[in-house]
């Protein structure tokens, strides 16, 4: 239902949409039921001078009456469990596991721009042929990516609505995540954590390109060094454990 308004461009996007649909159906049912009873009672038991209706005396403490409490209690519990299971399965998929990556990109947020480091022709980060861009991330269709998210100053958040993906960036840390692209085209990257005056001025685009297109882009943009001397085995990428790992 969401995809009608906003395309899905990642492998887990559909799962998240389905979860949203499931929750909508469950709570929608209860919402409508509650509203139905609510309005029904108001209309049915309304006092008018003509009907001169008298109220009943109901304490709500009898066993029979307790159904008003116990049914919602168990029903809500049941549906909660249902939703929790569905939600956690997706959470595990998106946030707790890391499928084998075809490539890794680094995303560096700062007030108020994004720097994207692409691995370049050798498909390795931190080599001289890395391609750095500002506010434009280039990825290839159908490939699985890991990203390493860093911040240079305050909190930011890397959000790609078309992926249904979001992750905050914290200065001093490198946070890892993944996505797999499933649709070509250009989509918004947003910063979704307030980061100062320019928070509204941190739009970026993610460009998902078909294999040939992407290869052409890499070729055209790779720094000359790379072409001359194939990447030497450079220093390993910083790990996320080191509290001072982020660049600042």
């Amino acid at each position: 239902m969401l995809s009608h308004y906003l395309e899905i461009a990642s492998s887990f996007g559909q799962d998240i949409d389905d979860l949203i649909l499931l929750i909508t159906l469950v709570v929608g049912f209860w919402f409508l039921l509650a509203q139905f009873l609510f309005f029904g009672f108001i209309l049915k038991f309304r006092h008018t001078p003509e009907n001169g209706r008298k109220a009943q005396y109901i304490s709500g403490e009898l066993k029979k009456e307790k159904r008003w409490v116990s049914i919602p209690h168990y029903a809500t519990l049941f549906f909660d469990v249902l939703i929790i299971i569905a939600a956690i399965r997706i959470w595990q998929d998106v946030k707790m596991q890391m499928p084998q990556a075809d490539s890794t990109v680094r995303v560096i947020a700062q007030q108020w721009a994004w720097t994207f480091v692409h691995p370049g022709p050798d498909n390795k980060l931190d080599t001289p042929d890395d391609i750095r861009t500002v506010d434009e991330l280039h990825v290839e269709l159908g490939k699985t990516y890991h990203f390493e998210l860093q911040s240079r100053d305050v909190l930011h958040s890397f959000s790609v609505p078309a992926f249904r993906l979001k992750q905050d960036a914290i200065p001093g840390r490198t946070i890892k995540g993944w996505f797999k692209t499933t649709l070509s085209g250009g989509f918004d990257i947003q910063c979704t954590e307030i980061c100062g005056i320019g928070h509204g001025l941190m739009p970026a685009r993610i460009l998902i390109e078909k294999a040939e297109e992407h290869a052409a882009w890499v070729k055209a943009n790779a720094p000359m060094v790379a072409a001359a001397a194939p990447a030497s085995p450079a220093a390993p990428a910083p790990t996320d454990a080191a509290p001072t790992g982020g660049s600042r």
């Binding site: 979860l19 709570v27 997706i90």
Partner: peptide
């Protein structure tokens, strides 16, 4: 929708 961690990835903020 927000308490379900899976969908909050999308809805957060």
């Amino acid at each position: 929708f927000l308490g379900a961690s899976g969908s909050d990835i999308y809805f957060h903020d």
